[in-house]
């Protein structure tokens, strides 16, 4: 399947861009992270500590063990600092 993968804040800066199209057969977010981490040193640095990251699937917050079936957009970002 093909996914739009989005990065925000310092993840975007480490990866080097804010969006990429990814062909993957990853079953879960965690599997996708393993594939993405192998793409570049920047990706590896961005994903070095999952405990400090959040993920959204089709714009809803999700867990790293969530399945990717049917998902079109995956976004990774640090904990939010709004308000």
């Amino acid at each position: 399947m093909s996914l739009d993968v989005l990065y925000f804040a310092w993840l975007r800066e480490r990866v080097g861009h804010g969006r990429e199209r990814v062909e993957t057969s990853a079953a879960t977010v965690r599997d996708l992270v393993a594939e993405l981490s192998a793409r570049s040193d920047g990706h590896a640095a961005a994903f070095s500590d999952l405990a400090g990251l959040r993920v959204a699937l089709d714009q809803d917050l999700a867990e790293f063990d969530a399945p990717l079936a049917g998902v079109r957009e995956v976004a990774f970002f640090p904990p939010m600092t709004g308000g």
Binding site: W10, A56, F77, P78, P79, M80, T81, G82, G83
Partner: peptide
């Protein structure tokens, strides 16, 4: 609303200060 906007709305603040830019940690 304020409590949830701080931690559940997807915004990220970067401080521009004398020592350069710095992402605000949650």
């Amino acid at each position: 609303l304020m409590d949830y906007l701080k931690s559940r709305a997807p915004f990220w603040k970067k401080e521009i200060g004398a020592d350069g830019p710095r992402w605000v940690a949650a």
